[in-house]
Simulated scan of single mutants.
Amino acid sequence: MSEDEILAEFRASQALLEGHFLLSSGRHSAHYLQCARVLMDPMRASRLATATAARIPRELRQQIQKVVSPAMGGVIIGHEMGRALGVEAMFVERPTGTFELRRGFALSKGDRVLLVEDVVTTGLSSREAIVAIEAAGGEVIAAASLVDRSGGSVDLGVPFFPLVALNFPTYAPDEVPADLAATPAIKPGSRAQA
């Protein structure tokens, strides 16, 4: 799948939003990619997962025994990646603020795991999920995401395979440009507060 074809999928689903957004990382942006919209069509989600799996070198793909993703944003793409790779998929969630496996999900000691996210910006959620996976006995051997918003700077401690890189500028709270600051920020992500 070419970058143009990938972006066409995002445009067709109206997944790219414009405005003033407070990202879950705490940074501000004039763009927000609502991956839930691009994944709401099961056939589109399957195409995107298959394309993402194809980015992972064959030798590494063949080692993957489980897919784990952080809830909520990574659940659908994680499930579809499990299907694309022919392995079980599960997710970690934060019932008390720290990621953990629940709902009867379990890893066997040494299970080789692919961590799958929808969007990676700073890598914070990914690194927190990796800690939880390792605490549960898994070994994260690679990570993948639909979108890398880090500008190529994220270091997850394992090989990282995004489907596409979208490098919209993000700003620390004290760096927000005046024109963007003039518009109230919306918290669209999974950590949005009421």
Rank of each mutant, 00 (worst) to 15 (best):
S125A: 15
I133Q: 03
L146K: 00
E128K: 12
S153H: 15
I141N: 12
A165R: 15
P177Q: 13
V154R: 07
A132M: 12
G152S: 05
L163D: 13
L163H: 00
G152N: 06
P173S: 14
I141P: 11
V154D: 04
V164E: 05
V176R: 05
A136T: 10
T170F: 13
R149T: 02
E128R: 14
R127E: 05
P162R: 05
V147W: 08
G152I: 11
L124C: 12
S145W: 01
G138N: 03
S126P: 02
S125H: 04
A165E: 10
S125C: 05
D148M: 07
P177V: 14
F168E: 06
G157V: 04
F161D: 08
S145M: 01
S150R: 01
A172N: 15
I130K: 10
S150C: 09
S145F: 07
A136S: 13
R149C: 05
G151V: 03
G138I: 14
P173C: 05
S150G: 00
F160D: 08
A136M: 01
P169L: 08
V158I: 03
R127W: 02
A135M: 09
A144K: 00
D155H: 10
Y171S: 08
F161R: 05
G152C: 10
Y171T: 00
E128S: 10
V140A: 11
A144I: 10
V176S: 04
V147T: 11
S150I: 11
A135G: 11
I141A: 03
P177I: 11
S150P: 05
V164N: 10
E128L: 14
A135E: 15
L156W: 12
A135D: 08
A129P: 03
A165D: 13
A129C: 10
S125W: 09
S153W: 09
L146I: 03
V147Q: 02
P159G: 08
P177E: 07
E175N: 04
F161V: 12
A132K: 08
P162D: 12
A132E: 06
I133S: 04
L166I: 13
V154M: 07
Y171L: 03
G138M: 04
A172G: 04
A136L: 01
R149I: 10
L146M: 04
A144G: 07
S145G: 00
A142Q: 02
F168I: 07
E134W: 00
P169G: 02
R127S: 07
A143Q: 02
D148Q: 13
I141G: 14
S125Y: 01
E134I: 06
A144E: 12
V176G: 00
F160Q: 02
D148S: 07
P177S: 13
S153I: 05
D174A: 14
S126M: 03
V154G: 13
P162M: 09
V140E: 05
E175C: 05
A136V: 01
F161T: 01
A132D: 13
I133W: 02
I141T: 11
L166K: 11
P159C: 14
P177N: 13
D174V: 14
S153L: 14
R127M: 13
G152W: 02
D148F: 00
A136R: 03
G152F: 05
P177Y: 14
T170I: 15
A143D: 12
V176Y: 02
V140I: 02
G137F: 06
L166C: 06
T170P: 00
I133Y: 10
D148V: 02
F161K: 00
D155L: 09
P162S: 07
S145C: 04
Y171E: 11
G157F: 01
G152R: 02
V147H: 09
